[in-house]
Write a protein that binds this DNA or RNA. Sequence first.
DNA 1: ATGGCCTTAGTTTAAGGA
Length: 258
Amino acid sequence: MKIATWNVNSLKVRQQHVTDWLETSQTDVLCLQELKLPDEKFPRAELEAKGYRSWFAGQKTYNGVGILVREGLVVDETSIVRNIPGFEDPQQRVIAATIEGVRIISAYFPNGQAPGTEKFAYKLRWLDALHDWISGELAQHPKLALLGDYNIAPEDRDVHDPKAWEGQNLVSPEERAQFVRLVELGLVDAFRKFEHPEKTFTWWDYRMLAFRRNAGLRIDHILLSNALAGSCTSCDVDRVPRKWDQPSDHAPVIAEIG
DNA sequence: ATGGCCTTAGTTTAAGGA
């Protein structure tokens, strides 16, 4: 089963990219972030026509997450969870579903703006809540995958210019400690199971010709429970859609499991 | 050089992203 994550920065603008990429990548389960549309505007029928069912938690203008599932895969309809249970939040950042017996979670972690700001404090609170929820989810679902835009570059090798970024949002010690705490629940960074060229990133700023200069960060991740990590045979970033016209600033990350 | 670009809302500039 091929599972993937992609922050599309507006599904309305990127709908054609998504359907084109699903076709070329042969992805079975695609987790989306930054839909930027309310549920009534979600292109459910159009995706269905392309062979994918969808579950989503949208909102106007900001955030919004979804999971697209290839026709024929078994989805437990009673398993759908939106948002982090017990964490009151109008921002739609999480949706979970059990697909073919695998707990799949699509998550859009808060950006955080900058250390010291209210948005950064919200990011840390959100990460605390996510940690505690995932801990319980792992107990119930040994086969679990947490996919999404983490808005955290876990290590300096995930940053094009670690000196320039030192201590800043997305790389700060507090955020990296939270990433480690998640991993310590019994999760594996699928990407790091395999060899990759140095400076493999998932996001590049629209400005400053950042993509052409490969001035990026690796902030989109697929974390697998130990039970799943053993059966993971690949995990790669697909930079190709970042070269298309009117691209998202993120590239999809795809892993093959089971 | 503290900006640069893109999306949304909505109508003209501002907020948010990362």
